[in-house]
Amino acid sequence: MITIAGIGPGDSQLRVYGVESCLADADVVVGSVRQLDTLKIDQNKRMKLPKLSDLREYVNNHLSLNIILLASGDPLMYGIGTWAINNFGRENVRILPGISSIQYCFHRFGLSENDTFFTSSHGRKPDFDFLLMHQQVGMVTDDEIGPYEIAAEIRRRHQHRMIYVGEDLSYPTEKLSIFDETNVENRKYKLNVVIIKNA
């Protein structure tokens, strides 16, 4: 059995009840160094997240162990939960939900999530013609398609939108910014979520 534990956007106070007891019972906890350090996982339990092909092989060879795989945010919102179900079968996977970074970002800006299209630009090129048909979009971004690139795509289509950017959400370095398509700063953004909203 493998458990995918959603640990929320970062702050321990935003973790869903049950994650701590799940971690206490684990034989092995798999995650990024940042996740493992944040949760203070014992050295004898921790395993740095390997390539997914290696992780698949490890889990398949150790299904008798209580393996916990950490997921930032919510495992089934552009997270590793879907990968786990597809690779190990629903009967071998338990999912502990978490607060997604997108959900948290909406709350920090005081914006309703109703009728929002949720997506991610991680490792993919979004269809901006399709995205901008929506009144509101919540998007997890990456280094390739971030706030500045999104604003450029909006300008290219001669449209107007408000762009809300949340960086390092729930961490002490959290930064919240509000732009429109004309004034998004051309800089490197930390881990971030972008909300695109019709003005």
Rank of each mutant, 00 (worst) to 15 (best):
F179K: 07
Q103V: 09
P50E: 02
H134Y: 09
P147V: 05
I145M: 12
S101R: 10
S120I: 00
M162Y: 12
G110R: 08
Q136C: 04
G73F: 07
S120M: 02
N114E: 13
R46G: 08
E144G: 12
R46H: 08
L96R: 02
G138H: 07
Q159F: 10
S120T: 08
W83S: 00
Y171G: 00
S100H: 08
W83M: 00
D142K: 09
I85W: 00
F117V: 14
D74C: 10
N66H: 11
A84I: 02
E91M: 07
H62D: 00
A152H: 11
Q136N: 03
G123V: 00
L96G: 02
A151S: 11
L65K: 13
G89A: 03
S177K: 11
R56S: 15
L65M: 12
G89M: 01
A84C: 09
E174R: 00
H107I: 14
H160M: 15
Y171S: 00
T141S: 04
I102S: 10
P50L: 03
R156C: 14
N61M: 10
N92S: 14
L55P: 02
T82W: 06
R46Q: 14
F179S: 06
V59D: 07
N114H: 12
E149A: 04
Q136T: 05
N86C: 04
H62A: 01
F88C: 01
N66F: 09
R108D: 06
D168T: 13
N86I: 00
H122E: 02
D54F: 05
G89D: 02
Y104P: 06
N86Y: 03
M139K: 06
Q136P: 01
Q135S: 15
A71V: 10
L111A: 01
I150V: 05
V93R: 02
G98W: 02
I80Y: 05
V137N: 03
K175P: 11
K125S: 11
E57Y: 13
P50R: 03
N86Q: 06
D129A: 11
S64W: 08
Y58I: 09
T119E: 03
G110V: 06
D127R: 02
K175W: 10
R156P: 12
V137C: 03
H134W: 05
L52D: 04
N114A: 13
N86E: 09
G110E: 06
S177T: 11
Y104L: 13
R124T: 08
P75R: 05
I154T: 07
H107E: 15
M47P: 07
F117R: 14
G98C: 04
I80A: 07
S100I: 09
I145V: 14
G110T: 04
Q136R: 06
F128E: 01
V93E: 03
S112F: 05
V137I: 11
L69N: 11
I95H: 05
F106E: 12
T82E: 10
N86F: 01
Q135K: 15
E167H: 07
H134A: 05
Y78M: 03
T141K: 01
L76I: 07
V93F: 06
I163V: 07
D143P: 00
F109I: 06
S53M: 12
A152N: 12
H158V: 15
H158N: 15
P126H: 05
S101L: 12
E153V: 06
K175Y: 12
F117Y: 15
M133V: 09
I102F: 11
A152R: 13
